[in-house]
């Protein structure tokens, strides 16, 4: 099981790690049994066209190197996207960026995808 250089770079210096005070949505996924817990924070704003978009995304993760790297990549992919575009992000998009993710570590990318979806869902519920 060798991690790619990209994955290790994200692990060493993760992007957008931290929290957002008064976040518009928070998605917490994973459980202590599998060992990974991920919390995705989103800050939503309106773009020029008046659509909701992710102005900022941050993460907190307790987990392995692949989980931390997947969280980091997810934030990169999500920031600047409209909510609809963000909801279309899948684990495969994350795996593609990370290159050579060991099969057993796919679930880390699934978690990241689910975490974002959950955060957006929470935002939508609040809004309604």
């Amino acid at each position: 099981m060798a991690y790619s250089k990209v994955l290790m770079d994200h692990f060493k210096s993760p992007h957008n790690q931290g929290t957002i005070a008064n976040a518009d949505g928070v998605g917490e996924v994973g459980n202590i049994r599998c060992g990974d817990i991920m919390k995705i924070y989103i800050d939503v704003d309106k773009n020029d066209k008046g659509a909701d978009y992710l102005k900022d995304v941050k993460f907190e993760t307790l987990g392995c190197a692949a989980a931390i790297a997947a969280s980091s990549v997810l934030t990169d992919l999500a920031i600047g996207k409209t909510l609809d575009q963000a909801l279309a992000i899948t684990k495969d998009d994350i795996v593609k960026v990370l290159e050579n993710v060991p099969p057993l570590k796919y679930h880390c990318s699934i978690l990241a995808e689910e975490g974002l979806k959950k955060a957006i869902e929470e935002y939508k519920q609040r809004k309604n």
């Binding site: 991690y3 290790m8 692990f11 060493k12 599998c34 060992g35 990974d36 987990g63 392995c64 190197a65 692949a66 989980a67 931390i68 570590k105």
Partner: peptide, 21 residues
């Protein structure tokens, strides 16, 4: 596993009983 990887980056080899490894 994250502890293991970080220590490896610092040139130290240990082992873990975490699920991830």
């Amino acid at each position: 596993e994250s502890i293991l990887m970080m220590l490896d980056l610092a040139g130290i080899a240990i082992s873990t009983g975490s699920a991830c490894s």
